[in-house]
Design a protein around this nucleic acid. Structure first.
Length: 577
RNA sequence: GGGGCAGUAGCUCAGUUGGUUAGAGCCGACCGCUCAUAACGGUCUGGUCGGGGGUUCAAGUCCCUCCUGCCCUACCA
């Protein structure tokens, strides 16, 4: 891919002391969709994710388990690799802060900062609560009558401690940071987050403690073994480690740095939008082009927390609803950047209403007609009518429209644009009524079905980044060759070849039926009958009537809808099996 | 305390630099269609654009004020 524009996107490195949850899955998903989109759009993409494996908590967890920290992190880091594979993420690299390449990069960066006079040795002092393992600001503590001092938040006793520590001269970077934000208005997105950061920086910056002597599990400070690097200088550096720093002359670095997007949760925005560009500028390195801070999920309207026990495991979600369905939902439901709510009803409504009914059924109805009425091959179009052109233009304009949204991480907007075309296509089918044209004007029918196939092709191409598995299937139904699935094939350039043989279509997006819930609702009514409800087959979305598959006492299976089931019950003709 | 964001139909949200009858999706009601995954299309119901005041020929869209909710206000990943 010589000459392709590079595109470098990163997730934060995830702290291994946590179990992977929906937040991790969400950040990485957004990156994955961007990465896949850019690849299909002809970019030379590097998509990086990884794990943050140093720190006191990790050291302690390892001690508790009676194993060395390295073995411990080897194990827990794997959880994050497994999640990435499970979710279908297409990361090109997976970095671990315990790798040798990272140690080299951090120490090189440290030396550079030291040489440039931005790191100095001082003392880290403050009110430390042993119980909380945390430092508190003066105003976060209060003096009790007996003379002891406690932390207001936890009530834990604090003591004044001083330990030698290296500091980064963050205070010296205030003006240069503000100038940087001013000159790069899209460096921090969304806009409201940018405002927060700017107001934070304007409020004045203190120097940052960047080393510790109280524990060992970290990268040693060069020429001072008593210290290890602390948190952010270690963690953030991963983004340049992965492109080969400190060898700034190597291919990877030259090509990919500065990164195009650092995707982060809103909780760690400041570190990425303030500390990180300051570190880089201090080391004479260019700052990344964008930091995007996304929001958090709630669970059925409730804040997610370990203590509430309502943590969402992405693996459970995927097992319940399907991978592409979950990927779709997370980026469709919420304007990216806002907080969102994960509700079962919303999930089902999206996957049934939009995936099964709008898109899945569109491809199913169109391809069925093609296979049945066009000799099982892509039909040959005739002259296009005005309506045909309108439909086709919408499909062909999609790439440019979607691209604009994706470039600013407006995923839900991009999806909405695709769905506009899908809805238009369903309307077009009804207006053109190819099932009538079959008898009246078969040539016209062929044209209409061709236009529809083209529309589906373009929609499916553009949805590949979001739902790779399903769209692979859909493009397969159209017999699109692997080499014709990039965005270079969008529009007329990759138009379907009439005569291409097609197989009978299979459903791409099944409807979600909550079997357990439905069956329970009947059991709950105390229903007795000479049959067992084997399973709920489907539900009529209009009448809310459910059709069950039942097993009669003679072993026969039958379908019975809920209205008849109620009648049978009223008649009292049914007895317990 | 300081700062930011938001408050638009039952629900979730769009609404460019102020300009004609405020939009979409979902939900609900009705009609149509029968190719399709009991799917699709169309019509309709539904809004004092948080309250009040102001600027203007004209404000959801600018100013002031009040109310409500969320977020930021440094070393935790």
């Amino acid at each position: 891919m010589a000459g392709a524009t590079p595109f470098y996107i990163t997730t934060p490195i995830y702290y291994v002391n946590d179990k992977p949850h929906i937040g991790h899955a969400y950040t990485s998903l957004a990156c994955d969709v961007m990465a896949r989109f850019k690849r299909l759009d002809g970019y030379d993409v590097k998509f990086l994710t990884g794990t943050d494996e140093h720190g006191q908590k990790v050291e302690k967890s390892a001690n508790l388990k009676g194993i060395d920290p390295q073995s411990f992190t080897d194990g827990v880091s794997q959880n994050f690799r497994d999640l990435a594979a499970f979710m279908g993420y297409s990361n090109d690299d997976f970095i671990r802060t315990t790798e040798e390449r990272h140690k080299k990069a951090c120490q090189a960066l440290w030396k550079k900062l030291l040489d440039n006079g931005d790191i100095y040795l001082g003392a880290y002092e403050g009110w430390y609560a042993v119980r909380d393992e945390a430092f508190y600001m003066e105003d976060e503590t209060e003096k009790k009558p007996d003379g002891t001092r406690i932390a207001k938040a936890s009530g834990a006793e604090v003591e004044w401690v001083e330990e030698p520590s290296y500091f980064f001269k963050l205070s010296a970077w205030e003006d240069r940071l503000l100038k940087f934000y001013d000159e790069n208005p899209n460096f921090i997105l969304p806009k409201s987050r940018r405002n927060e950061v700017i107001s934070f920086v304007k409020g004045g910056l203190q120097d940052l403690s960047v080393s510790r002597t109280t524990f060992k599990w970290g990268i040693p400070v060069p020429d001072d073994d008593a210290h290890i690097m602390y948190v952010w200088l270690d963690a953030l550096t991963n983004y340049i480690t992965a492109v080969g720093y400190p060898d700034t002359g190597n291919e990877g670095y030259k090509k990919y740095w500065p990164a195009d997007v650092h995707m982060v949760g809103k909780d760690i925005l400041r570190f990425h939008a303030v500390y990180w560009p300051a570190f880089l500028m201090a080391a004479d390195l260019p700052a990344p082009k964008r930091v995007f801070a996304h929001g958090w999920w709630t669970n059925e309207g409730q804040k997610i927390s370990k203590s509430l026990g309502n943590v969402i495991d992405p693996i459970d979600l995927v097992n319940k609803y399907g991978l592409d369905q979950v990927r779709y939902f997370m980026l469709r439901e919420v304007p990216f950047g806002n907080d969102g709510d994960f509700a079962h009803s919303a999930m089902v409504s999206r996957m049934n209403g939009e995936l099964a009914n709008d898109l899945g059924n569109l491809s199913q109805r169109v391809l069925s007609m093609v296979v049945k009425n066009c000799d099982a091959a892509v039909p040959t179009p005739g002259e296009y009518s005005a309506e045909d052109k309108v439909m086709l233009d919408q499909a062909y304009d999609l790439l440019e429209n979607v691209r604009q949204s994706i470039d600013v991480q407006a995923f839900n907007e991009a999806i909405e644009k695709v769905w506009l075309v899908i809805r238009a296509a369903n309307g077009y089918v009804d207006h053109q009524a190819p099932w009538k044209l079959k008898k009246e004007d078969p040539a016209r029918m062929a044209t209409v079905l061709y236009v529809l196939c083209e529309t589906i092709r373009n929609v499916a191409l553009l949805l590949q980044p979001l739902m790779p598995t399903s769209m692979e299937k859909m493009l397969g139904l159209l017999e699109i060759a692997d080499g014709d699935r990039t965005f270079a094939s969008c529009g007329a350039a990759g138009a379907l070849k009439p005569g291409t043989a097609l197989e009978a279509p299979e459903g791409v997006f099944p409807r979600f039926i909550d079997h357990e819930e439905l069956e329970k609702s009947y059991e709950g009514k105390g229903y007795d009958g000479p049959f067992l409800i084997k399973r709920a087959l489907r539900q009529n979305p209009k009448s809310k009537e459910t059709v069950f598959e039942i097993i009669l006492s003679n072993g026969e299976t039958q379908e019975l809808n809920s209205a008849d089931l109620e009648k049978a019950k009223e008649k009292g003709t049914l007895t317990q099996v």
